[in-house]
């Protein structure tokens, strides 16, 4: 009997929305193997979040909750030890979660401690041991078969829908093992403060590239972004040029996003950028260069300067949305 353990991250008294696609991936593995889904909630005082997860159920056999002050703030060192302990205690055959920056940090460390393989950034479940994952900046899809116990995985958040809630699942407390964080200290987390939705969660994203010319010009894109109720993004060329903060970068080495609408403005469309947004449902490209590669990918292309289009587009969008 397979036991699929999905690790969740919490936000206040709930689960982080970014953790949800990992549950869906776990459900699919449990289904493919005829096994059980188990959820694991970690934190200093995660009881409230565990209750919220249990109420939604998600088809899980149980929601395991492990509390320890060493688990907050997140460190890969303590989390990996906690995950290893939970995997051993439950006899998990699979261990994974969404490919967030935290789980990309902690799960490979945990896998090494168990001498186990890990399939990173899965976008589809082919069977209990075979997963599809993009390689080479999304230019190829590899079906990777992994052998070992347990099998670790991270699921790319943009490729799995949020799971449907189900019947409530029981909460099971699991005592935390001795957690040694090896002397590391998290000194601060400089969060990007924004009234806008997070890039990885936004329904609409407006991204600007080097062709915007300066950081000040991004104010025009911000107006359009806000008219659409979306998030602002950028290409690596724009973040490297210091026009906007680095954490707005969309691409192979930045955020992977898949909103319903992605508007690329003055972005030429380097492979590395495309790798981060090609999963978007509808892609609009606005670029003055008709030869820009971004047009190959766009559902709607407009060859024009941003200066001549963005203010008018903002106006029309505002009018439409207030109508």
């Amino acid at each position: 009997m397979s036991k699929v353990l999905v690790v969740l991250e919490t936000a206040g008294n709930g689960v982080r929305s970014t953790s949800l696609p990992g549950i869906t991936c776990g459900q699919q593995i449990a289904k493919a193997t005829g096994g059980e889904l188990h959820l694991l909630v970690l934190g200093a005082d995660p009881a409230g979040a565990a209750q919220a997860v249990a109420a939604a159920g998600y088809g899980a056999k149980a929601v395991h909750v492990m509390a320890s002050p060493a688990l907050e703030p997140f460190t890969a060192e303590a989390w990996a030890d906690a995950i290893v302990h939970a995997a051993r205690t439950l006899g998990a055959t699979h261990v994974g979660g969404t490919a967030t920056s935290s789980l990309r940090d902690a799960l490979p460390r945990a896998a090494a401690l168990l001498d186990a393989p890990l399939c990173p950034e899965a976008v589809a479940v082919k069977s209990g041991d075979t997963f599809t994952r993009p390689v080479s900046a999304g230019r190829a899809l590899l079906d990777l078969k992994v052998k070992g116990t347990p099998i670790f995985f991270t699921a790319r958040g943009t490729e799995f829908e949020a799971p449907a809630a189900g019947a409530a699942a029981p909460v099971a407390a699991m005592a935390a093992p001795a957690l040694n964080n090896l002397g590391v200290q998290v000194l601060s987390i400089q969060k990007t403060e924004s009234a806008r939705p997070a890039l990885t969660e936004a329904r609409v994203i407006v991204s600007g590239g080097r062709g915007m010319g300066s950081g000040a010009n991004f104010a025009h894109l911000e107006k359009l972004t806000d008219a659409l109720g979306g998030a602002l993004g950028a290409s690596r060329a724009a973040t490297d040029a210091g026009m906007v903060p680095a954490d707005l970068q969309v691409g192979q080495t930045g955020k992977i996003v898949a909103p319903e609408l992605y508007i690329a403005v003055a972005i030429s469309g380097a492979i590395q950028h495309l790798a981060g947004m090609k999963g978007s449902k509808v892609i609009v490209a606005i670029n003055k260069d008709a030869e820009a590669p971004i047009f190959q990918l766009a559902d709607y292309g407009l060859v024009a300067k941003w200066e001549d289009t963005i203010p008018r587009l903002t106006q029309l969008v505002s009018a439409h949305r207030s109508a």
Binding site: T18, S102, Q185, V186, L187, I189, T200, D247, K255
Partner: peptide, 9 residues
């Protein structure tokens, strides 16, 4: 990290 920069010693 996903929501900014974490400083770790």
């Amino acid at each position: 990290v996903d929501d900014g920069v974490e400083v770790k010693k």
